[in-house]
């Protein structure tokens, strides 16, 4: 729906302004909030940054699921700090989106009533402690692949948020791999848990890069605008090339019999994820879609009185100050 809107609006823009805008982007100039920008650029950014922010916030839930069950005090602290960072990343991204003329509350409501999406990966459950390892290793690993190039994206506030996020994110993947190493070298039960986590999370992690380039709706315009820096398939290949040897190091088996090094292309051959499952999850039929949205709705609605109470108190204080003057 957004894709269609973007198209029709883009065509109404003044061609001269559009050309000048594209020239700025091609010259790697940053676009800033008060600059002129095509409506399509603004809308695409709101959608993309908003979705990214929502993914951080909903992404707190599957890992938050294990904070109270972390096996040691140190693991509990590390996991809590990591999930807290995700809240921070969501916050930075909402702020970047707000510079485009949409409020955080508006974006939140579009998440809560299903008008906006978040990454499908967070609709999968975290079932054992090994999932904390696999999520950090694979899901954060895949996210970083996406995020590092976005530090050079054309929209200034987005690029700056990504710089901050990438700096903080660097410990996330490592802590995940660290958990995996402990599990893979632990008791037979722990190793089994690690393999099970890899089995469940491998293909959903590959889906995080989005559909194959030939089926991707938004790609070409977004790449011209430098809102998207690489194609889905490029990033997916890079991810597999990086991750497959790491799995081998752990002594774990990637759940893909076709996975093999291809000398000719200088990368791994690998199986595509089941895209029908991907579309099911996007449509709301993933294992946890309903739970995730319900949790976010509850957090927002049940605590409305807190946000209102704080505002009311601030208003009273302001009024008292004025009265005293």
């Amino acid at each position: 729906m957004y894709a269609q809107m973007v198209k029709s609006e883009a065509s109404q823009e003044d061609p001269e302004k559009l050309a000048a805008f594209q020239k700025r982007i091609d010259a790697n100039e940053k676009i800033e909030p008060k600059d002129w920008m095509p409506e399509g650029y603004r809308k695409t950014l709101i959608r993309q940054i908003g979705q990214h922010a929502h993914s951080e916030i909903v992404g707190q839930l599957p890992e938050g699921n294990w904070i109270t069950r972390a096996p040691t005090l140190e693991r509990k602290a590390i996991l809590l700090a990591k999930v807290q960072d995700e809240a921070g990343h969501g916050l930075y991204l909402y702020c970047a989106a707000e510079t485009l003329g949409v409020s955080r509350d508006e974006l939140t409501e579009m998440l809560l009533d299903g008008r906006m999406k978040y990454s499908s990966i967070f609709n999968y459950p975290t079932l054992t402690w090994a999932d904390m390892g696999a999520v950090g290793w694979l899901v954060d690993g895949a996210a970083i692949m996406n995020q590092v190039p976005l530090q050079r994206t054309s929209y200034g506030p987005y690029a700056r948020a990504m710089v901050r996020i990438c700096k903080e994110e660097s410990f996330h993947q490592r802590q995940g791999f660290d958990i995996m190493m402990k599990m893979a070298n632990g008791t037979p039960a722990q190793k089994q848990m690690a393999q099970d986590a890899l089995n469940r999370i491998w293909f959903p992690a590959l889906m995080m890069f989005g559909p194959s380039d030939k089926d991707s709706v938004h790609s070409s315009q977004s790449m011209a605008w430098k809102i998207k820096m690489n194609t889905n398939d490029e990033l997916r290949q890079k991810f597999v090339d990086q991750t497959a040897p790491q799995a081998e190091y752990l002594g774990l088996t990637v759940p893909d019999e076709t996975l093999a090094w291809n000398d000719e292309k200088g990368g791994y051959d690998f199986a595509e994820p089941d895209w029908s499952e991907f579309h099911d999850v996007i449509q709301g039929n993933g294992p946890c879609n309903a739970d995730r949205l319900e949790a976010r709705n509850r957090a927002w609605n049940d605590n409305a009185w807190v946000r209102e109470g704080m505002m009311a108190h601030a208003a009273k204080k302001r009024a008292q100050k004025v009265a005293a003057q």
Binding site: T68, K76, A87, G90, L91, Y94, A295, N303
Partner: peptide, 27 residues
């Protein structure tokens, strides 16, 4: 730490986590 991810606003979520982290460290 049970509030992580479900606090009234993001700023409060982050603040509560900081407090929990301090308390875990003291523990």
């Amino acid at each position: 730490s049970e509030w992580c991810g479900v606090a009234p606003v993001l700023e409060e979520d982050i603040a509560l986590a900081n407090m929990a982290l301090d308390l875990i460290g003291q523990t």
